[in-house]
């Protein structure tokens, strides 16, 4: 930011021009892609592919489709409940494991055994253990989203400047104060990266659970339902939802990335 403000007027406008040029090339890329898609479909070159215009019309149509909106709400709700719970669970555990090496060494084997279990393998089990289905969905999201947050917190705490911690200790601050004033702030950027990774995992898990449950609503159920249609509408619906979910993923990731840069600007300096 400081570099940009110290630039001369001419320098700034070159920068702006380069940015506009880049945006234009982005737009051209997307336009060419859509055009090729449209042509490939209209000319019958790719028979199964519905035209881009039809799919995009359906993308807009979905925004006014109450059934789809209810399903979308159900998926996002599980993610919005699950992610904060995962943060509340994983950050304290990560801080504990990171600051008390004995505990970390003791539990390392257990962690190393649990971590590689693919979370989707637990879906059928969670459906038995947690009822109704929304609970199973949230439980699995919490489980899966906790890992990247836990691991990143652990790395973040290990990365803490020992001098800062020792300084505080020598001024006879207690270990709780050291964790609160040194470990947590200096691990915060790592933790945030973990949360960003976890956010994309929540969607993967929610949609996977919805596939398996089927009747319980959510984007996953909507997709399975749509894919069983026998006419051409199946592919149009599926692609439209794919565009939606990609857009949601992109927006969430961009927002979190922006927040990360803004919150931890002090770190780069």
């Amino acid at each position: 930011m400081t570099a940009a403000t110290t630039l001369t007027r001419g320098g700034r406008s070159t920068l702006a021009r380069a940015r506009v040029g880049k945006l234009i090339r982005h737009a051209i890329g997307v336009a060419v892609f859509l055009l090729v898609w449209e042509l490939a479909s209209r000319t019958g070159l790719v028979e199964w592919l519905p035209p881009a215009s039809t799919c995009l019309a359906r993308v807009i149509g979905l925004a006014f489709d109450p059934e789809y909106l209810a399903d979308l709400g159900s998926t996002l709700l599980a993610a919005v409940i699950g992610l904060p719970l995962a943060i509340l669970l994983a950050v304290p555990v990560g801080l504990l494991l990171g600051t008390v090496p004995v505990v970390e060494e003791m539990t390392r084997a257990i962690v190393e055994f649990l971590r590689p279990i693919p979370s989707v393998a637990l879906i059928p089990l969670a459906l038995f253990l947690f009822q109704p289905d929304i609970n199973a969905k949230v439980a699995l999201i919490v489980y899966a989203a906790s890992w990247p947050i836990l691991i990143n917190t652990l790395y973040g705490v290990r990365d803490v400047d020992p001098l800062a911690a020792e300084t505080l200790r020598s001024f006879s601050f207690g270990s709780a104060a050291v964790v609160w004033r040194v470990s947590l702030p200096s691990a915060a950027p790592f933790i945030f990266t973990g949360i960003r990774l976890a956010a994309s995992i929540t969607l993967i898990l929610a949609i996977s659970v919805e596939y398996v449950v089927g009747g319980a609503g959510g984007i996953g159920a909507f997709l399975i339902q749509a894919s069983t249609a026998l006419d051409d509408s199946a592919m149009v619906d599926v692609i439209a939802v794919l565009v939606w979910s990609g857009a949601i993923g992109l927006i969430v990731n961009t927002l979190l990335l922006r927040a990360e840069r803004r919150l931890f600007k002090w770190r780069d300096a």
């Binding site: 994309s200 969607l203 993967i204 949609i207 996977s208 596939y211 984007i219 996953g220 997709l223 399975i224 749509a226 894919s227 599926v238 939802v241 794919l242 979910s245 990609g246 857009a247 993923g249 992109l250 990731n253």
Partner: peptide
């Protein structure tokens, strides 16, 4: 950004 399981259907 598309959640990979969405590819399945």
């Amino acid at each position: 950004a598309v959640p990979p399981p969405v590819m399945f259907p």
